[in-house]
Simulated scan of single mutants.
Amino acid sequence: MRPAIIVFSAAILPLALAGCQTMTPEERRAADQRSCAGYGFKPGTDAMARCLLDLDLDRRADMRSWRDQQARTMWGPMYVERRIIIKED
């Protein structure tokens, strides 16, 4: 019964964590605006717009990097090892 609990936990944990990290576009924009305001940028200025753009570009670059890393590890070459056991008399 214990392996079933481990398998169940392994299946549910990623779903629970994904649910915690979901932000709507409006929430993300508000968080980005708070971040840029925290850096000292004033709303409605070109500097604020540039800060928001930089945050979005950084987020997209991080996502591309993560996606590329996942593709390399998931679809990389597969090595199969066949061991040959030789018994000596």
Rank of each mutant, 00 (worst) to 15 (best):
Y79P: 00
D32N: 09
A30N: 06
A18V: 07
M23K: 15
A61N: 09
I85A: 13
R67V: 07
D56L: 09
S65C: 08
Y39R: 14
R59H: 05
A47R: 07
L15V: 02
G40M: 00
S9C: 13
I12S: 06
D68L: 12
G19F: 02
A16I: 07
A11I: 00
R28P: 03
V80Y: 10
I86S: 13
I85Y: 08
R83V: 00
G38Y: 01
M48F: 01
G76D: 00
P25G: 01
P43R: 04
V7D: 11
T24H: 01
L52R: 03
A16M: 11
K87Q: 13
R67T: 08
L55T: 01
P77D: 12
V80Q: 15
D62K: 13
R2K: 11
A61Q: 09
K87M: 07
A4W: 15
R29W: 06
S9W: 06
I5E: 07
A30V: 03
R67S: 10
L53H: 11
E81I: 05
S35N: 05
R60T: 02
G38N: 04
G40D: 04
A49L: 01
E88M: 13
Q69W: 13
R64M: 10
W66C: 04
D89H: 14
L57G: 05
C36W: 01
D56W: 09
P43D: 04
L13S: 05
A16Y: 11
T73N: 10
R82Y: 14
R50M: 12
T24F: 02
L57S: 09
E88A: 12
M78P: 00
R60W: 03
T45C: 03
T22E: 10
A4Y: 14
A16C: 10
K42D: 11
S65V: 05
R50S: 07
P25H: 04
K42V: 12
S9T: 09
D89W: 15
Q21G: 09
R34M: 08
S35Q: 09
R2Q: 13
C20Y: 12
